[in-house]
Design a protein around this nucleic acid. Structure first.
Lengths: 215, 215
DNA sequence: CAACTCAGTCAACAGTTGTTCACTAAATAT
DNA sequence: ATATTTAGTGAACAACTGTTGACTGAGTTG
């Protein structure tokens, strides 16, 4: 039967290759430790067939970044939608985000692992993505009347701080019990508090001139 | 001549193995992508000789964590000493720390790369080290009269936020020009501001009950 | 001086890796 | 109906990997 035309079927095994790479990474190893042959073996095709889809493992990695990036954007979209409708913005945002991370844990695991990881190309791509997020958030923050006392450079630093805080929390959100410490708050709750610290700090920010003389 | 006794010479090539691993990593790849043979080749010994020093590449990695950890502790010691003597605590602390990072860039590069990187054993060891730093800082913060209004759990979250902020800034401190963006502040200056945001937030922290009703 | 310890050598092993080439057969195009 | 495109096959390649065992010779010890 020809229910699946050729192009369709091709894209299907291409996706299988991407998923296989993520799955192999989930078992502990980093992306650059996943071999081309492992990936094809997992999909069930012969190694040479890999080249019909990607010239390189690095190309596979870049495609992965693109895909994971869109997952992340969807998460942001969800968080933003809720932000407008609800009170307790931080609490609700973090809850929604944390749920989304758990649902797409392989994607976010990839992001967390490879943001400083092995392949230079992948690392660079993730960095560029992160920078886009920061720019977006920067524009967002600039619209808030509560933060109108900040300068343009302050927005940039603040946005960077928020985004990187979220990124570093990803491993804990994904593996809630890996870093076992007895009587502390849940990862999501901790992230909440961290964002609160930062935003309270932004609210009381007095500009670069007033260095430390007042506190 | 027997200027170098045997144990001394052994420890010397052991150190050469550790340095070789760091050097090979500095050329872009992650630790788990560095092979046993590459390391021995760089040192100038035969692969089999590796086993006289480490049972495993993982063991080499753990030794590396220990060594880098002590470098980091020395940096903290320097920062602390200065903190007591100078005004403008954050500015001076960051400057000293940033200089130390540049001086030992290979060590801090290892830390930044492998904190979420490939080898599970190394990742876990770095995580434990990070947790130690957080605990130390927690105790430190608890001594500050400016932060006496915080609860015990608040100290933990705050310390974690500070330490992780420093860790995520490491790549930028090491490679000041990799993330080229035109007209923004230097990485060290950005880190300064980030810490300021956080500490101002801590100063105005009103406890967990006052969620968002006041701002 | 003799006995011993042991860091490093040498050669070989079984696996795995990325990449190549000519090929098949089904889907598409003419 | 015929010709073309192309996702996937199968075999082979050179290179590299971690690990082994028996060895050598300088450093140490009694």
């Amino acid at each position: 039967m020809t229910l699946l035309i050729r192009a369709e079927k091709k894209q299907q095994t291409r996706q299988a290759l991407l998923d296989a790479a993520l799955t192999l990474m989930a078992d502990g190893q980093g992306f650059s430790a996943v071999s081309l042959r492992e990936v094809t073996r997992q999909v069930g095709i012969v190694p040479a067939a890999f080249y019909r889809h990607f010239p390189d493992m690095d190309a596979l990695g870049l495609a992965l970044v693109e895909q994971v990036s869109s997952t992340f954007r969807e998460a942001i979209r969800l968080v933003r939608r809720n932000e407008l409708e609800q009170y307790g913005a931080i609490h609700a945002s973090v809850r929604i985000f944390a749920e989304y991370v758990v649902a797409y844990r392989q994607h976010f695991l990839f992001l967390a692992r490879e943001q400083y990881g092995g392949s230079a190309a992948v690392r660079q791509a993730i960095n560029a993505m992160q920078r886009d997020f920061i720019t977006d958030l920067e524009a967002d923050l600039a619209l808030s009347p509560r933060l109108s006392h900040l300068g343009p450079e302050d927005y940039e630093v603040l946005a960077s701080l928020v985004v990187k805080t979220v990124f570093t929390t990803l491993p804990e959100l994904i593996n809630p019990h890996e870093s076992d410490q007895p009587d502390s708050r849940s990862p999501a709750h901790q992230l909440e508090d961290k964002l609160r610290f930062i935003l309270i700090g932004a609210k009381h920010w007095r500009g670069i001139k007033a260095r430390t003389d007042g506190d």
